[in-house]
Computed example of a mutant assay.
Amino acid sequence: MAEKTLMSTIAYCEKSATIYVYAGDGSFEERSDYDGVVSVFWESDDCALLYGANGIFGRKNLLKIFAELYRRGARRLRMKRAKRHRMPFGTIIEEGTVENTWEIDLPKALNIQTKQSTTPA
């Protein structure tokens, strides 16, 4: 009896990343000390979840992070924050007992004008 050969297909999908914030000319390549780090998990092609943030960010660096993720296709960001913390540029979309889920509309946060379709439905 001949053995059946099972055909398989694999797919590699990059769903996560890490963003580092460096002071001055610091870089990952040089393994410089970083001021902040945050992990990114892509929930869909246009929505990323930020988690595990640690360090110093500030609004200027947050906007740089937002711009980089926008460049990579994100239009919305989500982040869970302890109730006592806020998320600049964000809106609470889900309230929990100890933390809230925030969502950031990237075009709005970055003040990017998006073209609205003018074609009638």
Rank of each mutant, 00 (worst) to 15 (best):
G26P: 10
G26H: 08
S27L: 02
S27T: 08
E29I: 11
E30Y: 06
E30D: 15
E30T: 14
S32A: 01
S32I: 07
Y34A: 03
D35Y: 11
G36I: 07
G36D: 01
S39W: 09
S39L: 11
F41R: 12
D45G: 13
D46V: 15
C47S: 03
A48F: 00
L49F: 15
L49I: 09
L50K: 04
L50V: 06
Y51M: 10
G52I: 04
A53W: 07
A53D: 07
N54P: 09
G55A: 01
I56R: 12
F57T: 04
F57Y: 07
G58L: 02
G58M: 04
R59E: 12
R59P: 04
R59D: 15
L62S: 06
L63Q: 06
L63E: 00
L63P: 12
L63R: 04
L63S: 05
K64P: 05
I65S: 01
F66M: 08
F66H: 05
F66K: 02
L69H: 04
L69I: 00
L69F: 03
L69Y: 06
Y70T: 06
R71P: 12
R71Q: 10
R71E: 10
R72S: 06
G73Q: 08
G73T: 07
G73F: 05
A74E: 09
R75V: 10
R76D: 13
L77N: 04
L77G: 05
K80N: 15
R81M: 06
R81Y: 01
K83V: 11
K83E: 11
R84D: 14
R84P: 13
R84F: 14
H85F: 12
H85Q: 11
H85W: 13
R86I: 12
M87V: 14
M87C: 13
M87F: 07
T91A: 11
E94H: 10
G96E: 04
G96D: 06
V98T: 14
E99K: 00
E99W: 01
E99L: 02
N100Y: 08
W102G: 01
I104S: 00
I104P: 00
I104F: 03
D105P: 08
L106W: 02
L106P: 06
K108H: 06
A109H: 02
L110V: 02
I112Y: 00
I112M: 01
Q113F: 14
T114W: 12
T114G: 12
